[in-house]
């Protein structure tokens, strides 16, 4: 297999791409080598050389510890536990949370063979041993696997003197009931809360 075929095959394996889009992307890159291909190769090489996994939280960044862990104004007493780096980035996009993170590296799943040994629990224990964390926010998926993992971690954390919280589940902001799926509505109804009136 020559370099071009290998390139197309490799591109077509990327998420969201198939053989047709792989070929189209390859032609686009090769069409204007200097303008598109060269800079892309440089950027990819630079990312390969510089991007590392943060030893403290599990985020990926060009510096180690990552920018979040080394930021002096981050609240040290709050720890947000997420399943993957993509979840960490989603939380960061809210610009609301100012504490620190821990990436678990997945969720407990019998089907995928993910057991507690596969999760980054040692990182969690290190955080807890530091003694600074006062609240752990379990920002895990609102799925059976996500919540099973949340309960498992809550059990692990029960020996420490920390507040444990999870993200709320239910009707999303701007959600119209008519368009919501039954699962979300069931959960929202089950977790309904009293409406507070102005005194």
């Amino acid at each position: 297999m020559d370099a071009l075929e290998t390139m197309i095959k490799t591109l077509s394996r990327l998420p969201g791409l198939g053989p047709r889009s792989g070929r189209r992307l390859a032609l686009y890159l090769l069409g204007e080598k200097e303008k598109n291909f060269g800079p892309l190769v440089q950027i990819l090489q630079e990312a390969l050389d510089k991007v590392e996994t943060c030893p403290e939280c599990g985020n990926v960044d060009v510096q180690s510890p990552c920018k979040i862990c080394s930021h002096p104004q981050r609240v040290q007493s709050e720890l947000c536990v997420v399943a993957d780096v993509s979840d960490l980035w989603a939380m960061e996009r809210t610009h609301m949370y100012k504490g620190r993170y821990l990436v678990l590296g997945g969720l407990l799943s019998a089907l995928d063979g993910k057991t507690p040994e596969d999760l980054n629990l040692s990182g969690l224990r290190q955080y807890m041993a530091g003694g600074q964390v006062k609240e752990v926010i379990l920002a895990l998926n609102a799925t059976v696997e996500g919540q099973t993992t949340a309960h498992f971690i809550a059990e692990e954390l029960s020996r420490y003197d920390v507040k444990i919280s999870t993200l709320a589940h239910g009707v999303p902001v701007g959600g119209e009931l008519d368009y919501l799926d039954e699962g979300t509505l069931q959960t929202a109804l089950h977790r309904r809360r009293p409406l507070e009136l102005v005194a």
């Binding site: 019998a110 059976v144 099973t148 589940h169 039954e182 069931q186 959960t187």
Partner: peptide, 21 residues
């Protein structure tokens, strides 16, 4: 065609969710 899911009702109950899983 979805009818319901008992697991979603017991998301907050570790023991029942654990039993269902």
């Amino acid at each position: 065609e979805y009818h319901g899911n008992p697991c979603l009702i017991y998301m907050d109950d570790p023991l029942r969710l654990g039993a269902l899983s």
